[in-house]
Structures are given as structure tokens and as C-alpha cells.
Amino acid sequence: MLKKILSWFYTAVVFIFLYAPIAVLMAMAFNESQYNALPFKFSMRWFEALSQNTRLIDATKNSIYLAAITGVICVILATALMLGSRDTSSKIKALVNSVVMLPLTIPWLIMGLSLLLLLRALGLDKNFVMLLIGHVVISLPYAVLILSARMQDMDKSIEEASYSLGANEWTTFRRVIFPMISPAMLAGGFMAFMISFDNFVLSYFLIPTGTTTLPIEIYSSIKFGFTPEINAISTIILVLSLAIIGIIAAIMGSSLKNLIR
């Protein structure tokens, strides 16, 4: 009995440790006080203020725009890589794997700095394309991880069955492979989206002058003293991403049940 109570207690502590800060952030978004001070008084004023704050909204739009393109590119690249490297020798597979996974181990700081130096060397200004390349490089490993896990437990003979029934490569991809890996593509894309959306360091190095992303905007507003508008936007983003994760989990869950024997 005591053991049971203790284990519940332990779980509760871990949960509080993990989620209390987020709960506080969300609660303060609905608090009247400008300085996140107690007592709590419910108010929507920070959400109203947010709706007027074009700078913050633009930063959010930029971040979503960048992360969405990153996500799509990463999914396409990861899928092509996985499909392409499947039939190659184990040596090539290992090579592709390490080249793609390497950015996981390189600190973002160094990655950002080197991309910036590359720009300088090329005599270019900071631009959106380089920012996008940077984001793709750091997000790709996550998309690859998710997709390769799915592809590994896919039965190769299912594809071969499609060929033997008279379907060419494109038809086989469209009608057999794609339906089987689309949940993993969705999950991989979302993962890449989140990594990109969240990234501060790389964006800070590479963002074209005059534009901003949400992480950069939040960071700089902390320096100048911030209002709970940040809490408000964070809350909106949090709720939205939870909703998306929920939807994906539901799709993945049901299709996984359908797909995996």
C-alpha cells in the first residue's frame, strides 16, 4: 500500500516538474497583471493586445511560413532518401545515414556560424534561401528517423507483388507505398515543422535584416521587459500544436492499426 502511494507521489512530482512551468505560463496569459503577479484575476486583455500587436503576429506568420516550407522539403527529401537507399549495399546505406544524421551532433551555434561565414565567403547578404537551407539541414534528421522506422517494418514483397501484377514504379508508389507510409510522412513532416518553428539559434544568425521569427521576437522582448502578450501567443501556439499532435496521433493510430499486421 505504502509502495503504491509512494509510486503515485513520485509520478505526481515528475509531472509537476515537467508541466508546472507550462501551466503557469498558460495561466498567466489570462491574468490581468502586467507583471505576471498574483492574485490571479481573469482577463482576456492580453489576447486583445496581441490582436493589435502586428510585430508579434508577423513574426509568428514568418515562423509558420518558414517551418511549413521546411517541413514539406524535409518530408520529400527524407522519403526519396529512404526509398532510394533501401536497395543499395549496406555500405552506401551507412554512408547516407551518417551524412543525414550528422547535423544532430553538430551544435546549432556552430552550424549557424558556419552558414553565416559561407554567406560572407560567397559575398551574399543574409537571405531567406540560406535560412531555409539551414532549417532543412537541422530538421531533416528527425523526418528521416521517423520515416526510416516505418520503412524498415514494411514488407518489401508487398511492393514486389504490385510489380508482378503489372504496376510500374510510379503506380506502385502512388497506390501501394504512399498509402502505407503517408502517416509516417505526416508525422515526419510535423516533427520537422516543430524543430524549425522552435529554432532560435540558427535563425538568429541567418535571418535577413528587418525580418524576424517568433523565437527571435520573444527573445528580444525578454531583453526589453515583456508583457503577457507573449504568454498569450505561446498559449495559442501550444494549444494549436497539441491539437495537431492529437489529430496526427488519431490518424496514425487508426492507420497503424489498419496497416501493421
Binding site: 514488407d155 514483397s157 508487398i158 514486389e160 507483388a161 504490385s162 510489380y163 508482378s164 501484377l165 503489372g166 504496376a167 510500374n168 497506390r175 501501394v176 498509402p179 502505407m180 492507420s255 489498419n258 496497416l259 501493421i260 499486421r261
Partner: peptide, 20 residues
């Protein structure tokens, strides 16, 4: 001749039915 133009039927050990 590529697989898809051979017109051979194949039954696999794992059956390889299209799960979806």
C-alpha cells in the same frame, strides 16, 4: 523484360497482400 510486363502471377510466402 521488367517485372510488370512479364505477366507472371506470384504468391509470396508472407502473402504480401496490400494491407490498405
Amino acid at each position: 523484360i521488367p517485372v510488370y510486363n512479364r505477366n507472371f502471377g506470384m504468391v509470396f510466402q508472407s502473402y504480401a497482400l496490400f494491407p490498405h
